[in-house]
Write a protein that binds this DNA or RNA. Structure first.
Lengths: 186, 186, 186, 186
DNA sequence: CATGAATGAGACTTCATTCAT
DNA sequence: AATGAATGAAGTCTCATTCAT
């Protein structure tokens, strides 16, 4: 039985498992079993579990970048764009049963020797931070104030994601969104 | 060689290890070795690794409650109290090399079957949330607005902790503190 | 809280557990927990798990000797006495959910170093053998033939017990009883 | 150092150990050490100790089926065939130092959750029972009587095996054989 | 490119027993 | 006589990885 695209099947399978249960809670055996691949085939495509994790984070990042790019190029006002982005967060939290941010979750169990993973997390977070800064720059004339408020949204967004996960509740998302929209009403 | 007080040595040792590397990344073997105990001594006091984790979270919670109680009973204004609390966070992040919130970190790798752990996390988070709500209630006359702002501080506080950990940087803490203090200046 | 008769409580508790699950499948911890005794109290009364097993086997033996003595001293004919004894076996197998002979079950997991246990088993089995020989001697005039048939009943009785256990069925008991009663009809 | 055929070495080694000391008295560690395998190699081939036990029982069953098939297809009379079969039992008991029936011994320590093991035991016993019934059917014209006597031989055979083990003596085998041969002389 | 078998190290847990009070 | 804490050894099973084909 020919099984092409082993590489992609592994990535997809691992992605789902890593996402749902956490990087450290999923073993190679389960991944290859559910992907229908042999053990050695796995190591032909990914030199280590860690590298698979990097590939997963990178793939997710690319997808999320697309979403942010779409939002940025839309005709909406900055406040509307932010409302949309927090709307996506709400949908995501509901659909994922409050699994939270995969990057933060992975970072919680990655020691400092996993440079590649750490770097993926860092760059993803900086990318989101930059997204918020871009939006505030469009609305607030003072550049320094715009940067500060962009970072503030970033912190609110992260806190909302994390505590919605911890408490299995949506209210942190609502609180954060309200705080953000208030910024634009003053 | 017989050493007394295995229970305490285990809790202390495990606490340090869980904190620094994460619950799922630390094994019983390492704990008992560093605590200088026999494996069976461990299981005499803690029926499972999970129960040890609960004991650890509970001990930390009790200590952190003491801190919040101290702050609450001080003579400072609510804004000053919050400044002090975020000052503690900054000190903590620096001293711990940005390890972040142990509760959130543990929650990221605990599946839903670990009811005890999940409950510890939830109650700790609610305790902090209540702390912030208590402080905003002292300053904002409108009760609903006070609750909303208390929750907002909670989200900011959590986001600051999480992103300082992810980015190994202090700026999220500063951003959050500034946002909080701004609330009290309007 | 005074807890007298720890020795007896241990013996009784262990007896039930050994009986239901087998000597090797029951640990000291479970015994003392269910008996409500401390670990060291156990070892004050029984120098080892093995010795507890011996005490258990001995106690059961004494009870079963009483039953056989009662049957022997009754007014029944030898055939009727045997019918009664196999009737007891049937009741016992039904009540115990086909747990089989505790002595044989224990012997299956006792190596040759457990001299005390081995000896208990041997003497119990010889006691039953002698019981059957006594009954056949009452009916069969030829002493050698009587001994042979007594031993034959012994083998039938043991096979019935063992296979009723293995197959969770009563028919081996019925087969053995029929075979025995046939002996007395010829 | 990499050694092939771990699967077979494990089965063979475990078979000897299970046989001599009993399933519950032999650990995985001892098996893999004596088989010269790594622990993970064991679990690659057998998902659990229980499944290894099943494989062992199955292998023994296949061998014993061969023996019974040989006897059945021989030119001997039913009585001679039974004499041969009990002769094999005698040889086996002598060679094994009276270890008894591995199936019964295993059943004595397997709780009801070990469905696979229980089923192996049951089917093995039924197979022997059928063997005896086949032989009696050849000699006794009345079918019901033939079945009853086949089962009676089964019970005698089992009792002989079990009590020879318990008493470390050959006489139960001799008694059972004599009883069987008597059936065919009447 | 793909594979099944093999691996050392370590995971969590329980065993029967003994010590010090 | 009774106890709670401590123990070394062993229990079953899984980890990420590599070998030989």
């Amino acid at each position: 039985m020919r099984k092409p695209n082993a590489r992609e099947r592994i990535l997809e399978t691992a992605g789902e498992l890593f996402f749902q249960r956490g990087y450290s809670e999923v073993g190679i055996n389960e991944i290859i079993e559910k992907a229908g691949t042999a053990k050695a085939s796995f190591y032909q495509h990914y030199p280590s579990k860690e590298s698979l994790c990097e590939a997963w984070l990178k793939a997710m990042h690319d997808r999320s970048e697309t979403l942010r790019a779409e939002i940025l190029t839309s005709e909406d006002s900055p406040a509307e764009k932010l409302a949309r982005y927090f709307g996506h967060l709400e949908t995501y939290m509901a659909n994922s049963q409050f699994r939270g941010c995969p990057y933060s979750n992975t970072g919680a169990v990655s020691d400092e020797q996993c440079c590649g993973i750490i770097e993926q997390i860092r760059s993803h977070k900086e990318s989101i931070r930059q997204f918020f800064r871009t939006l505030t720059a469009l609305h607030f004339p003072n550049p320094e104030r715009a940067e500060e408020l962009g970072d503030r949204i970033f912190v609110l967004y992260s806190g909302a994601t994390g505590e919605a996960q911890n408490l299995k509740a949506m209210w942190p998302v609502h609180i954060a969104r309200a705080a953000v929209l208030e910024m634009f009403q003053a």
